[in-house]
Design a protein around this nucleic acid. Structure first.
Lengths: 95, 95
DNA sequence: TATAAATATCTATATATGTTAATACGATAT
DNA sequence: ATATCGTATTAACATATATAGATATTTATA
């Protein structure tokens, strides 16, 4: 497998992680260096706790988010602030 | 269904369209206002014609690409140049 | 009109992803 | 220690997507 192909696959994996309504909403929520707990996210977005946790773990595994645990709480945040730009960009492209 | 949710779904559909190695490669190929025929694309990327055509139609249907037919040839191009920025952005985010 | 070139579509199979609900785990406080 | 809160995992099922090969459609030209 060529290097170029590997890069394409990795990039598409990351995009695929973001390409979901709930996960897109999560990324938007975490713009500007915000950090939020699972509870805060599931309450803000009005989704089940298990659903939030599930999508957060997908975003974490695909390198979109990172976590810090503080006691009972897990605070998620964007690994690369730049990723929020993707959301802005794709929003501008909707006619 | 709320307006916000509809926007999220549309945005994620567009991202999902791009989130595939071959389709990402196609978008990269069409940066800077380039226009390419199906044949040129499948030869450049070393993929079957049917595969190229298939992915091009996905990108067209999801609003990523447009087509102009000129005689026998169909020339595809980015509907929003801005979309190429997404590729640049996601590439920069790979550690 | 017959043929070739360019592109699109279809079918079938495999694989991946999403959804929901239930349950388990880990940390804290009582 | 046990009850509770916050979070993660699992299982079961439905749906969507990818892949490959064969074939159809459209257009141009001999």
């Amino acid at each position: 497998m060529t290097n170029e192909l590997t890069k394409l696959i990795q990039a598409s994996e990351m995009l695929k992680a973001i390409a979901h309504p709930i996960r897109l909403a999560i990324v938007q929520l975490l713009e500007n260096d915000k950090r939020m707990s699972v509870t805060a996210i599931h309450e803000t977005l009005n989704i089940e706790q298990a659903v939030a946790s599930h999508h957060l773990s997908i975003l974490k595994n695909k390198g979109v988010l990172s976590v810090d645990r503080e006691g009972k709480h897990c605070f998620y945040f964007l690994k690369h602030q730049r990723l929020a730009e993707i959301v802005v960009c794709v929003n501008k492209c909707q006619e």
